[in-house]
Amino acid sequence: MAPRATAAPTLHKVIMVGSGGVGKSALTLQFMYDEFVEDYEPTKADSYRKKVVLDGEEVQIDILDTAGQEDYAAIRDNYFRSGEGFLCVFSITEPESFDATQEFREQILRVKNDENIPFLLVGNKSDLQEKRRVPLDACTERAAAWRVPYVETSAKTRDNVDKVFFDLMREIRSRKSDDSRASNGQVKKGKSKRFKCQIL
């Protein structure tokens, strides 16, 4: 993988987590293809790849859209291990999904064993303010407790969709360069190496 990193653009692996029906796929598809799919169709696992320009640098983003349903937890774990950043999505209209973020967070920390893993708490369906059932305070409070950013999005109106992905990529990038500095290794190889070690 090391030689690949030099040849191809830097690759950031992002994983979408959250309960079923909160809009993980909708966010992903909106970001990838500018499309909004109305009808709900549970995901098992889907992965997308896109080249984007992040602060003037061309990078590649791999987005793994996971299943919200517990049935696929086993499959999910295999991916968590190799994910570099996480978007933890819930629906602001559904308190249960907000509660579930706690569990997802713990699961990720358990697999990654790293408190500072790039992570964004995302409250989706912000277009449905009238149906809001998760107060903003609770969201920001939890984000603060986790020391992660909190962003509200709407996959339907595309509000903040790019923002969450780009913010996360920035976090991943800075995380990677921190790691390479910490390991005082060679510039490029160190990046990938240091990071992977923590995965394992």
Binding site: M1, K13, A45, D46, S47, Y48, R49, D62, L64, N78, Y79, R81, S82, K196, L200
Partner: peptide, 18 residues
Amino acid sequence: FITPARDQRLWEAQTILT
């Protein structure tokens, strides 16, 4: 049996599948 290479293959296959 978890290796970075297998991780990569996993993502690759998943992307193709999607």
